[in-house]
Amino acid sequence: MSAQLLIVDDSTSMRQMVAFALTSGGFQVREAEDGQAALEIARTQRFDAVVTDVNMPRMDGISLIRELRQLPAYKFTPLLMLTTESGGDKKLEGKAAGATGWLVKPFDPEQLVATVRKVIG
């Protein structure tokens, strides 16, 4: 069975691009439009990895990562940030919240798939 991924981004087109890249890479993908929706989904379904944007309404990506790390099922799950934010401050904040890694938009689909494969192991 292929790995289950949760993609979180408030941009529909970005979610579609990420989902397309990852499904083409052989993953099963579920989408959420913001951190709040993602958290509700993650409470009822287990994912092998989460790829989240940082800047979103209702709940941003860093808060989402912090919340997910509180759930026993997500203590060790790879949580990747995919964002236009390349500043060191945000990276540190993401790391402190429990982010596994950081990818900058615009992303390279092959690199995204390779990174997800690597963190899932």
Rank of each mutant, 00 (worst) to 15 (best):
V8M: 09
V51I: 15
I65L: 07
V50N: 02
V116Q: 10
E93T: 08
D108P: 04
A32Q: 04
T23F: 04
A38V: 06
L80G: 01
L79A: 02
A114M: 11
S86T: 14
A97I: 10
F76H: 14
Q36P: 00
A21P: 02
S63P: 03
M56W: 04
L22M: 11
P106H: 06
R117Q: 14
D89Q: 14
I62C: 03
G61W: 10
G87E: 07
R43P: 01
V113N: 05
R30D: 07
G87H: 13
V116Y: 06
G101Y: 08
E85A: 06
E40D: 11
R117A: 09
K105H: 03
G121E: 12
V119L: 14
T52R: 10
P106K: 13
E93I: 02
D34K: 14
L103S: 01
W102A: 00
G26S: 08
L39H: 09
A32F: 06
G98Y: 05
P78I: 06
R43F: 05
R117G: 01
L103C: 04
L79K: 12
P72M: 06
L64F: 05
G88I: 14
G88Q: 15
Y74G: 02
L39Q: 04
E93S: 11
K90Y: 09
D10M: 09
M56F: 05
T52N: 06
K105W: 02
E85M: 14
V116D: 01
L22V: 06
D60E: 02
R66Q: 12
R46T: 12
Q111G: 02
P109I: 07
T115W: 03
D60V: 10
T12E: 07
G61N: 07
F76S: 09
M14S: 10
K90I: 10
Q36A: 13
T52P: 05
F47M: 10
R66Y: 09
A3H: 15
E33G: 08
V8L: 12
V104W: 03
L71D: 00
V8K: 11
V51P: 00
E93Y: 03
V29T: 15
T84N: 13
T83H: 09
K95P: 00
D53M: 05
G35Q: 10
T115C: 04
A42T: 07
M17R: 15
L22W: 07
E85V: 08
K105I: 01
T83G: 02
G87Q: 12
A21D: 01
A42L: 09
L92Y: 04
Q111M: 11
E85G: 05
K90M: 08
E31N: 08
G35S: 08
L68H: 08
V54M: 07
D10G: 03
P106T: 04
A96R: 15
R43S: 11
L112M: 10
I7R: 08
S63W: 11
P57S: 07
Q111R: 15
K95H: 11
D53G: 03
Q45K: 15
D108V: 12
L71V: 04
A99R: 13
S2P: 15
V18A: 14
V50Y: 03
S24E: 09
R69P: 04
A99N: 08
F27C: 02
R58D: 00
E85S: 10
L112K: 14
A38R: 07
G87F: 08
P106I: 06
D9C: 07
L6G: 03
Q36E: 12
Q111V: 12
A96K: 15
M59C: 05
L103E: 01
K118P: 00
I62F: 04
R43C: 11
G101S: 13
A3Q: 15
